[in-house]
Amino acid sequence: NITNLCPFDEVFNATRFASVYAWNRKRISNCVADYSVLYNLAPFFTFKCYGVSPTKLNDLCFTNVYADSFVIRGDEVRQIAPGQTGNIADYNYKLPDDFTGCVIAWNSNKLDSKVSGNYNYLYRLFRKSNLKPFERDISTEIYQAGNKPCNGVAGFNCYFPLRSYSFRPTYGVGHQPYRVVVLSFELLHAPATVCGPKKST
């Protein structure tokens, strides 16, 4: 009989979030998941669920729940959905087409922007091929755009693959930082360890 609440607040209220290319994953298990708490945590810009209804979450049980978190800019949030393409979905964080879970995003301009520009958040701009779903690539190998090998040196047709967002508070919403948490629900042929409040007794 599990009584402890799932530590969603640790994920959502973390002081620092990860850069999207090096997104963070927390496995959540053996706890009571009260998803209604999430609705009250922040004024969400996005709370979209796929393959599951957000209002039914509190009635369900899962084997595992994974919470992935990272920062992107406002106009990239739409890429965090099944079947999307674009720089983020292709080279940084890719959801599977049959994704079961929820994408939660909110504006973090007050936390993640600086007047002089916050350069701490990076994204991958160049990659030889698209990522597979939930693949994480943290390599910093020089990207070869031409025929000549780069031998690890940046220059003509040889690019450092990561680029930094420079978040400034005066930017338009599309270029402001957004914190994203992706909850993916895993149903294996194994005992369910993460249940809503109704199912945990």
Rank of each mutant, 00 (worst) to 15 (best):
K199Y: 00
T85V: 01
F126K: 11
S184K: 12
S36N: 03
A22R: 11
K26S: 14
R73S: 03
T201G: 13
S116N: 00
I2K: 08
K148I: 10
F185W: 05
Q144N: 05
Y178I: 14
S116F: 15
F160C: 13
F44P: 03
L5Q: 01
A42S: 08
L60K: 03
S53D: 00
F62M: 08
V194L: 02
S116K: 15
K48D: 13
P149K: 02
N4F: 14
N64Q: 00
V173W: 05
A154F: 13
V194Y: 06
N87A: 10
T15Q: 06
V32T: 02
N13Y: 10
G83R: 06
L111V: 01
K128S: 04
S19P: 14
K114T: 15
N151Q: 02
T100F: 04
D9T: 11
V37H: 04
F160Y: 02
V20P: 14
F160K: 00
F160W: 11
I138C: 09
S166F: 15
L111R: 14
P149I: 10
E10L: 13
T15H: 08
T85K: 02
K110A: 08
L188K: 07
R27Q: 04
L188G: 10
R16T: 04
N109H: 14
L131I: 02
P7L: 12
P54F: 03
V32S: 09
L41D: 11
I142M: 00
F45V: 00
T15P: 06
V37S: 00
G196E: 07
K199W: 07
T193A: 03
Y119Q: 07
R163H: 07
F185M: 03
V153Y: 03
L131V: 09
V194W: 06
N147A: 08
L41W: 05
Y123R: 04
K198F: 03
K56I: 12
F45P: 05
P191V: 12
G51H: 12
V65L: 05
E186N: 02
F62H: 11
T15K: 01
S116E: 15
R27C: 04
A18Q: 13
Y143V: 08
S129E: 06
N147H: 10
F160E: 06
A42T: 05
A192N: 01
L187Q: 03
E186R: 11
D9A: 04
K198I: 05
S129F: 07
Y121H: 15
T100M: 11
V153K: 06
T55S: 10
H189C: 13
V115C: 15
P191D: 01
S164K: 11
Y178V: 14
P43S: 07
R163N: 12
V153H: 06
N151E: 10
T46R: 08
A192R: 04
N64K: 09
N64D: 09
N24T: 01
V37L: 08
G174S: 07
K199C: 04
V194T: 03
K56H: 01
L111W: 05
K110L: 05
N151W: 02
R78V: 06
L188Q: 03
L188P: 01
D59H: 00
A14N: 04
P169S: 15
G196V: 06
A145E: 06
F156A: 02
L122G: 06
P7H: 12
Y39C: 07
F45D: 01
L5E: 05
L95I: 05
K114L: 15
E141K: 13
A192P: 09
F156N: 07
G152K: 12
V153N: 08
V194I: 04
L5V: 10
G155Q: 12
R168M: 09
N87I: 09
S166G: 00
E186K: 04
L111T: 15
R16L: 10
L5K: 06
F160P: 00
K128A: 07
T193V: 08
T46H: 08
V115E: 15
F126M: 01
S164R: 04
N120W: 14
N64F: 10
I104Y: 00
R27Y: 09
Q144E: 11
G146A: 08
Y119M: 07
L111Y: 09
N4V: 06
K48Q: 08
P169R: 15
T46Q: 04
P54H: 04
E10Q: 07
K148E: 02
A145R: 00
K110Q: 09
F45W: 01
F126S: 02
N4L: 12
V173P: 00
T193F: 08
P191N: 08
Y66W: 03
N64I: 12
F185Y: 02
K128C: 14
F45A: 02
T46I: 02
G83K: 07
V194E: 10
N147K: 05
T85M: 13
V32N: 06
A18P: 06
I28F: 11
K110P: 13
F47M: 12
Y119L: 11
E10V: 14
F62L: 11
D98G: 13
Y35W: 08
K114D: 15
D97K: 11
H175N: 01
E135D: 14
V173N: 00
L41H: 01
Y178T: 15
A33T: 07
R163Q: 00
N40E: 06
N147W: 05
G83Y: 12
P197S: 11
T46C: 13
P197M: 09
S53Y: 12
G117H: 15
S184I: 14
N118Q: 15
V173I: 01
S116W: 15
V65I: 13
R27S: 10
K198V: 06
D75S: 04
F134W: 13
N30H: 07
P197A: 09
G83N: 10
F44S: 09
N40K: 05
P169T: 15
S200W: 05
V194K: 05
I2G: 11
H189R: 01
T170K: 15
K132H: 04
K132M: 02
S184G: 04
L125H: 07
K128Q: 08
S164T: 05
A190R: 08
D97M: 05
T85A: 09
K198T: 02
L60Q: 02
A192G: 02
G146D: 12
I28W: 02
N109M: 11
V153G: 00
G83M: 09
A154Y: 13
N151P: 14
F99W: 02
S139E: 14
S184H: 12
S166N: 13
L187P: 09
F126L: 04
A154M: 03
E141S: 06
R16N: 12
S139D: 12
L188H: 01
F62Q: 13
T201C: 05
R27H: 12
N4R: 12
K198D: 02
K56V: 13
K198E: 02
S53H: 14
F62Y: 05
Y50F: 12
T46M: 00
P149Q: 05
V37W: 02
G196C: 10
S53A: 10
K199Q: 08
P191C: 13
F12L: 14
A145L: 07
I80V: 12
P7A: 12
D90E: 12
Y171M: 06
S36A: 09
L188M: 07
L188Y: 04
S116V: 15
S19D: 15
N147Y: 13
L60C: 08
P191G: 03
P54L: 00
F62C: 08
K198C: 08
R73N: 13
L60E: 06
T140V: 04
K148H: 00
N64R: 01
S29P: 14
L187A: 12
A42E: 05
L187T: 00
A42G: 00
K110G: 08
L41S: 06
Y21H: 14
V115K: 15
R16E: 07
L183I: 12
L188T: 05
V32R: 05
P169K: 15
S166P: 15
N120G: 04
H189Y: 08
L125Q: 00
S129P: 08
L187N: 00
R27N: 07
R27L: 04
T63M: 13
Y91M: 13
Y143F: 10
T3H: 02
T3K: 06
F156T: 05
V153Q: 01
F156W: 02
F134Y: 03
Y178C: 13
T3S: 07
N87M: 01
G152D: 13
T55W: 03
D9M: 09
L111K: 11
N24R: 02
S116Q: 04
K26T: 09
I28M: 06
T55H: 00
S53Q: 07
G83H: 04
T55M: 06
V115S: 15
G152A: 13
G83A: 12
K56D: 12
A81Q: 14
